[in-house]
Write a protein that binds this DNA or RNA. Structure first.
Lengths: 234, 234
DNA sequence: ATGCCGCCATGACTATGGTCAAGAGTACGG
DNA sequence: CCGTACTCTTGACCATAGTCATGGCGGCAT
């Protein structure tokens, strides 16, 4: 893919498109673009942050390795999403590691550039804050899910987010492999398998990397209702 | 407590003290100060945010009520800490509710004021981003803990954060009641009790709201080691 | 085609944590 | 000094999820 195509995607990314037009070109011309293979590291936890990253293609996961060796997936970013804004501007170290989980194209914006632009235009600060807030919000949602829902309910919500429809039947493609989905949802692959099994009672069937949902509303109910109720329904 | 004392604490808060001096007085003079009783609501999830909040005394919890009725504690703030920065500046709705969990004094800064100050001085934007990043970081840590550690290990880390010492024995005071500690750590009060029980093997004893740690390093090991190891040691 | 390998599902077993119920200890107010 | 209310602890029981081991299925290369 050529750089021009990359720049087009970049212009559409959530972070960039909220910026004033005349800064965008400066920014794109000073950014760097790079390809990553599946499994390749983008940055490591505790490295000093001096760039903001925008996913142009593929998938990138942020994760932490606990001292006991287990990995906690913090988030997974798709095309058009950006990460590292707050850290880079503060100039501290990354609290997480980042890795491409499929072949990926990533744009890197030097934070020094952003800082200087920010000094001449406070609107940029607001844009960055907005995008940081989005991450904050999604972490809060994850916390709520982990603390207040069972595994099967988290899987249900995950499927609901993929299917952009209010009611009726729906078929969605699982965006990445099940090991990663499981990690993202805070469980082991085996548990994910079993969770899928339970969702059969809510009209969900899994084939390969496709999920067929009989009725979105039924699934939504399953995700929100007290888990106790699902026992009685077998 | 008089307003002057409140302002002194406010000047020492993480958010305010990083601001340029000449803005601080403007800010303090236009902020409002309020007392909250234990259990009183400060704001509700989905309310529109137009203020930033700074805890001057007491404790404030942020939490979400899931559709199934269960509560997930997102964070607990102490004197000197602030919250709501990113939301207020973006002008969207709060993703969480806030409630005083002890009698508390809270300062409220209108976000309109911050926005206008930010326009004349980008340094303010940086300060706010820094403080937002701190929240982001703490949410990431919580996620890691929930996903990669057992209950007892999370309790161990909680105690370690309270005790500001590198090694040797240590006695800490539990800052708020056990129901809230349990919520903050993603478990029920009964499980917290049992987790304390397990920590006996790591040299921790609980009396009232005091925790006596025989050896900080031993506790740290307990928190970081694979949980499997703790079985063999009874 | 054949065989290998990665991914996923399933089963058996175990630990962890939630739920319900009962009881101990403490604090507060009469 | 007592009773009441509250917080916390404990026990029993069970659902949920992690671990380990096995086996199926599909893709890929020889």
């Amino acid at each position: 893919m050529a750089h021009e195509q990359h720049k087009a995607i970049a212009r559409n990314s959530l972070l960039i498109r909220s910026l004033p037009d005349h800064h965008i070109e400066t920014l794109l011309s000073r950014a760097s673009f790079r390809h990553y293979d599946r499994g390749e590291t983008i940055f490591l936890q505790d490295e000093e942050a001096n760039e903001i990253h925008v996913v142009l293609d593929g998938w990138v996961k942020l994760f932490r390795i606990a001292p006991n060796g287990s990995e906690a997936v913090v988030s997974v970013f798709a095309r058009g999403e950006s990460f590292g804004e707050a850290v880079a501007l503060k100039g501290t170290c990354y609290p997480v590691s980042a890795e491409a989980v499929s072949p990926a194209e990533v744009m890197h914006i030097p934070s020094s550039l952003l800082v200087s632009l920010m000094k001449e235009d406070p609107q940029i600060g607001i844009s960055i804050l907005a995008s940081t807030f989005t991450h904050l919000h999604s972490l809060v949602e994850q916390l709520e899910q982990l603390k207040a829902q069972t595994g099967a309910q988290r899987v249900a919500e995950f499927l609901l987010k993929l299917c952009h429809r209010d009611a009726g039947a729906c078929e969605v493609v699982l965006p990445y492999d099940k090991v990663l989905i499981a990690g993202r949802l805070g469980m082991k692959p085996e548990s994910l398998s079993r969770a899928f099994g339970r969702l059969k009672s809510a009209g969900v069937r899994i084939q390969r990397n496709h999920a067929v949902i009989d009725d979105v509303q039924v699934l939504r109910d399953y995700a929100e209702v007290d888990p106790a109720e699902s026992w009685s329904k077998g």
